[in-house]
Simulated assay, not measured.
Amino acid sequence: MSDFLGIHGTALALREQRLQLLAANIANADTPGYQAQDLDFTHALGAALRPSAEAGDPIAAAAEAARYTRPSSQPSLDGNTVDGDLENAVFAQAVLEYRASMSFVESKVRGMLTAITGQ
């Protein structure tokens, strides 16, 4: 993400990646053997903000490094670790966090437009 948006742009991109993982969990709730995935947001954000000599997308690399398999809260005969109620609650919280990050980005852009136009 650009330096213009600072930490907020990076956070927004990582929150989007987390939402995609959580949506995949919900979509695969009935898939035998599917292992629920999540993203350690704090770890991913720290990794994405650290300068790296690696080429490529630092946000995608940080998200992949912070990805983990969530342990099952209940045993299942088919090996699926998705708990529908837990996934829906975690997804709802992640949506709120995404909206908060979006508000920060919108505020930053609005401030820059005000500075540019002088209004």
Rank of each mutant, 00 (worst) to 15 (best):
V95T: 11
L96R: 12
A27F: 06
G56Q: 05
D78N: 09
A24M: 08
S72R: 07
G118N: 06
P71D: 03
V105A: 03
E87N: 10
G46M: 15
A60R: 06
A55L: 14
A100V: 08
T117C: 01
P71C: 03
D40K: 00
E54C: 08
S2H: 13
G33C: 10
A89H: 15
P32K: 07
G111K: 06
D85G: 08
G33M: 04
Q37S: 07
G46R: 14
P58D: 03
T69P: 11
D30A: 07
L5I: 08
A29L: 05
A92N: 12
A94C: 13
E64K: 09
F91V: 01
D85Y: 10
F91T: 02
N25G: 01
D85L: 14
A11I: 07
L45M: 04
A47I: 00
A63M: 04
L113Q: 13
A36P: 11
E54I: 10
F41A: 01
V105L: 05
M1L: 15
S72E: 15
V90T: 06
V90M: 00
R110T: 11
V105T: 11
A48Q: 06
D78P: 06
M1K: 08
D30Q: 08
I7K: 08
M112H: 14
E64R: 15
F41G: 00
G111V: 01
A92K: 08
S76I: 00
L5E: 04
A36C: 12
P32C: 09
L96A: 09
N88Y: 02
I59L: 00
D30Y: 04
A60V: 11
D30T: 05
V109M: 14
A94N: 03
L77M: 07
G9R: 03
S72Y: 01
G118F: 01
G9Q: 04
A13C: 11
R99C: 03
G84K: 13
D40Q: 03
F91E: 00
F91R: 03
Y98P: 03
L19S: 00
T114A: 11
L113K: 14
S73M: 11
G111W: 04
D3P: 11
F41R: 01
L14H: 04
A92Q: 09
A65L: 03
V90N: 01
T42H: 12
L22E: 08
L21H: 00
A115G: 12
P75K: 06
S2F: 13
A62M: 04
A66Y: 12
R18Q: 00
T114H: 15
T114I: 04
M102N: 11
Q93E: 14
R50M: 05
P75L: 10
S2W: 09
